[in-house]
Design a protein around this nucleic acid. Structure first.
Lengths: 220, 220
DNA sequence: TTAATCAAGTAAACGGTGTTTACTTTTTGA
DNA sequence: TCAAAAAGTAAACACCGTTTACTTGATTAA
């Protein structure tokens, strides 16, 4: 229950302050995004000086990275939990897709920031972790494995490359997630506003992706 | 050729300075994105004081909005031009999809910024233009019309809602655009790096979306 | 042509940001 | 108990977007 045996009081205190920082950052970031999260304001909210933050995090970006990565960790957990349902394969796959999107738009700032980071430049810098070591990489591996399972079960054509399909499916899910996160009115413009709820649209969309995968690429 | 007849020298001078601002902003923004674009630096690069910028633009955001909207205008033009090809309908549709993505990733900062703007809050503020009046709205209308044409030509099921399909297709294109814009290594990780060039992947992906639309939603 | 008016442009300041440096206080371990 | 290490901070640095008060230059009316 408590780790008094292997940690000193100082270490425990340090972890406590660190957690206070992360927790306060999490709260303001999830509501106001990166704009609202300033080191000064953050320090003030937990009754420390701004400089104190830098005893725990090398930079604001480092702190933000922790928020993003931990969010993506929860996202992966949600998907894994969804995958444990006992429906048919296609229903399970669609449910996983939908869970990804729903979790993403539940914390729009987290999700968008998780992808907005390293825009163009060197993706393989010395400090940057390998893709496979990140939660994003974990998500991709799960997705790729799930699609391979679909091939093995005969739901997708034997010729389908699961990795390629995973990239496609991921891009597609990412697209709707970003759309719904950034443009609240997206699924409801035009004259026919309420023909579909966002949830219904997500299901429809996931089905669309899966249908696209079911058809063989080399078609008549 | 010249508009000396309907404009005064002062107006022409003003437009010239304004253009210098936009042009300088365009250059640095397309290479470094919003981070690299500061009013002070911009003013310095065109030999004006920072305050001078505010005689032409109410705020930095207003200037950025102009860059984004004009970029999206070029994007729409490219798509229209692509649509004038004389192949079969499906090939034309796929070409339009691909053009959208290729144009988007050609100016990744512009494209990302065009969607990153109004994150969560009031999308229908007094200053914000109606969706249909924006270049984005124009793009959506074109897409929607093209898909309706596909229904009429019998390429898509009669039951397909073109608006719904347009939303889906747009989200999907948006997804791959963002992926390729922000994660250069995206289409080439894993052990099999160079199995496909980005261009080939884009074509494959667009085909996937179209295939998804071709299948009826109420399936066996 | 002269005087008055309006637009263009600017220096300096305001309030904010992330971050670093030099310093003080507190805690720890021998 | 006492030196060393860690925790914490005030103040500064170098930026940022933006506003205010002001000067300079061009335009227009008398």
């Amino acid at each position: 229950m408590d780790d008094h045996l292997h940690t000193t009081p100082a270490e425990r205190r340090r972890l406590q302050v660190r957690e206070a920082i992360v927790s306060a950052a999490e709260e303001v970031f999830s509501q106001e995004g990166e704009e609202g999260l300033s080191i000064r304001r953050l320090a003030d909210s937990i009754n420390y000086s701004p400089a104190a933050i830098y005893k725990y995090f090398g930079s604001k970006e480092e702190l933000l990275d922790e928020l993003k990565e931990s969010f993506f960790g929860r996202l992966v957990e949600h998907i894994h939990a969804t995958g444990d349902g006992e429906d048919g394969y296609i229903d399970r796959a669609r449910a996983c897709f939908a869970t990804y999107i729903r979790t993403a738009i539940d914390k729009p700032h987290h999700y968008a920031a998780a992808f907005a980071g390293h825009a163009l430049p060197n993706a393989l810098a010395p400090g940057v972790p390998e893709f496979a070591e990140t939660k994003k990489g974990e998500a991709f591996l799960f997705l790729s494995g799930m699609l391979q399972e679909g091939v093995d079960l005969g739901h997708f054509p034997q010729s389908m490359d699961a990795t390629l399909a995973a990239k496609s499916a991921w891009a597609a899910m990412h697209g709707l997630s970003m759309m719904l996160a950034h443009m609240p009115t997206f699924p409801a413009f035009g004259p026919d506003d309420d023909t579909m709820t966002p949830d219904e649209f997500i299901d429809f969309y996931c089905d669309l992706i899966i249908r696209g995968l079911e058809v063989d690429h080399d078609r008549p």
